[in-house]
Design a protein around this nucleic acid. Structure first.
Lengths: 179, 179
DNA sequence: CACCATGGGTTCGTTGATTGAACCCATGTC
DNA sequence: GACATGGGTTCAATCAACGAACCCATGGTG
């Protein structure tokens, strides 16, 4: 979006935000990053995104300071993309989008978000229904809802079936030895 | 986005929402509609969007029930696009995006949103800072912030300089006779 | 009546982005 | 030595966006 014709004429912080995260796939990459996805291959299989597009999005998100690329092992060199504070600040946007999608597109309750400290459900605009505090993204635990497919095909979706705290790295199953 | 390759594989209400409003320009059209823009030409000059794209977006937003096309005069036939309840429910998404844009892209305070009942400022997640109630979109008054251009070129931007309640139709100046 | 302006579009050639398949490369494992 | 894995790049074909031009019905002006 930042390429070519963009929204620069718009004197508006919504337009400014969309210049950065408004391209196709971008918000889904950020969503996955907040869910704990960090590896190129995990984004790839979970999103079903073309490789070239994923590379482009990871690069611009890194340049924008929304993800941080970091080497987590040498030999063979392996990098991961970790969401920054700036990226995690997009959580309210994603929460609002998800809420709208559930209310106005498709009523299924696919995932639930709970407050780690007290177990209360996180309300659409970020408050805990039980204790009333505003729940920071790092204190949100995501659990599968009743209508989520319980045996998805890809390993990333399977890993996301286990309750997990947002931002924490996702642990995928090690590949099964084929007996 | 709904055309061709889409996000249907994603079992996620965020992806569902983005299938509907994730295309280029779409959220800016909805923003303008919530600001009170209703006429084809007003969208056109305010957004600087190509006509063909605007026509396409208005059509799909109407089909999705986010805008409603209605005839406001016969002879000559004139239609306006009015935001529906479903469209107005996107306000929290836009508010969150605008907040992120202001905090993380560009610090300018371009527009302020006040609670019509008490004059308090509406906080990022929708509560009134003064009286603490959750402010519905129809009770939000938008006023220009200190850093907004006070003499913009296009008549829609000029009309948006006057304080106005969201959702209410925008009144543009009648064309000046050229003496 | 002829002419131009306005609102609300459509058509079309050009440019740019997305897609999916194929390929690449360094390392590690059987 | 052969193959698998992670993390990419390249490329042709397709799709969407852009912007300029055109269209049409009506209304106002000289």
């Amino acid at each position: 979006m930042a390429l070519g014709k963009d929204y620069v004429t718009q004197e508006c912080s919504i337009a400014r935000a969309l210049e950065v995260v408004g391209e196709r796939w971008t918000l889904l990459v950020v969503r996955d990053a907040i869910y704990g996805v960090r590896r190129y291959n995990d984004f790839l299989v979970h999103l079903g995104i073309p490789r070239a597009v994923l590379s482009a999005r990871l690069r611009t998100l890194t340049e924008e300071g929304i993800l941080e690329k970091r080497r987590y092992q040498e030999s063979p060199p392996r990098d991961e993309y970790v969401v920054t504070e700036r990226g995690a600040a997009l959580w309210p946007v994603l929460r609002a989008l998800g809420h709208w999608g559930r209310e106005h597109v498709d009523a299924h309750r696919l995932r639930l978000f709970l407050h780690a400290d007290c177990g209360g459900e996180v309300e659409p605009y970020g408050k805990c229904a039980a204790c009333g505090t505003f729940v920071p993204v790092a204190d949100v635990v995501m659990v599968p809802g009743p209508e989520l497919d319980s045996a998805p095909a890809d390993p990333v979706s399977r890993a996301l079936l286990r309750p997990k705290r947002l931002l924490e790295p996702l642990e995928t199953e090690p590949p099964q030895p084929a007996y």
